[in-house]
């Protein structure tokens, strides 16, 4: 499998790395290890959660090594605590650095969220307020991570359920500042845009236009579930346990029109369907990517 070389390695600290191809990929789940090796589906890349592979040995590493031989790899962290008020866990950062050293993934991404506080890991992506103090802290954390990992990371926009009275900036504006100041890239999760905009009554077009679309390195697509808040208003939950919704596909096409074809992940963490079902969603994303490339080329 050939991999494209990133045309614009903008960060001065990050040497040029092979980039993900502008194709559709899927979350790699242990349930699909064997199927992928047996059926070798034509998938653009696979993505794993870093923390699941911070183990010494066993089937996870065995299969990731095998699959990595044939597919481009993206590693997605869920526990770096980039948005945390307390200092990053240096030991955790070291373990992540070791993992990236071992697998040399085309891409490493993390979340604009906090996950730990006071020595407790909450196993959830928790929201932060958006003000200048938070901005400085997040940029320092990203600096620390990028320096330690010796590469640019992508930062994912969050799905949130509450806002904070202390916030002085809109989320998209905050993300734009972080990307500009830290030199990280953007992992644009289109489902999160839909969820967040629904939950906070924002206009997704405006939200997306405020984002630094020139720095998008990867796109995530996923499914959500539907709840109601205390007043009966729709509250979407970023559950990753359902197919990508129509609304998110529409938003995705719009995003491709604005930022061009980008590596796109079909993300699935719950109700894991058979591999062909995920692959079919990836093919749909790929048809939209192709259409976008044809327009770009014409």
């Amino acid at each position: 499998m050939t991999v494209a070389i990133s045309p614009g390695s903008t960060s001065d600290r990050a040497p040029a790395k092979p980039a993900l191809p502008p194709r559709a990929g899927i979350s790699l789940k242990p349930e699909h290890y064997r199927d992928i090796l047996d059926s070798r589906p034509d998938i653009g890349f696979v993505e794993v959660h870093a923390e699941n592979y911070l183990v010494d040995g066993g089937p996870y590493h065995y299969y990731l090594n095998r699959i990595r031989e044939d597919y481009a790899l993206s590693i997605h962290g869920v526990g770096m605590n980039i948005g945390g008020e307390q200092p990053l866990d240096a030991a955790h950062l070291d373990r992540i650095a070791g993992l990236l050293e071992r697998y040399q993934p085309a891409c490493f991404s993390e979340h604009l969220a906090w996950t730990s506080h006071g020595g407790i890991y909450f196993n959830d992506l928790l929201p932060l307020n958006y003000d200048s103090e938070a901005l400085q802290r997040v940029c320092e954390h990203i600096d620390q991570v990028q320096n330690r990992l010796q590469r640019q990371i992508l930062l994912e926009n969050p799905a949130t359920y509450v806002e904070f009275g202390r916030s002085t900036m809109a989320e998209a504006e905050f993300i734009g500042e972080v990307v500009m100041r830290s030199g990280c890239g953007l992992l644009l999760d289109v489902n999160n845009v839909h969820v967040t905009c629904t939950n906070h009554n924002l206009d997704p077009d405006t939200y997306i236009r405020q984002l630094p679309l020139g720095q998008v390195g990867e796109i995530h697509l996923a499914g959500f579930s539907r709840e109601q808040d205390a007043d009966g208003a729709t509250l979407l939950i970023d559950s990753h346990d359902a197919p990508v919704s129509e609304a998110v596909w529409t938003l995705y096409e719009d995003v491709l029109g604005r930022c061009g074809a980008k590596p796109t992940l079909i993300e699935r963490d719950g109700n894991i369907p058979p591999l062909p079902t995920l692959h079919a969603e990836a093919r749909h994303a790929e048809s939209l990517l192709k259409a976008c490339q044809e327009i770009e080329g014409s």
């Binding site: 909450f122 196993n123 959830d124 928790l126 929201p127 307020n129 359920y161 509450v162 806002e163 904070f164 009275g165 202390r166 939950n199 906070h200 009554n201 709840e227 808040d229 205390a230 007043d231 208003a233 509250l235 939950i237």
Partner: peptide
């Protein structure tokens, strides 16, 4: 006390999503 909701709905209900997730 600092959490807000756009429609003024009781934020405790939305905070419960995080409690539940964790």
């Amino acid at each position: 006390s600092d959490i807000r909701t756009w429609n003024g709905s009781d934020p405790v209900r939305r905070f419960a999503v995080y409690r539940n997730n964790v």
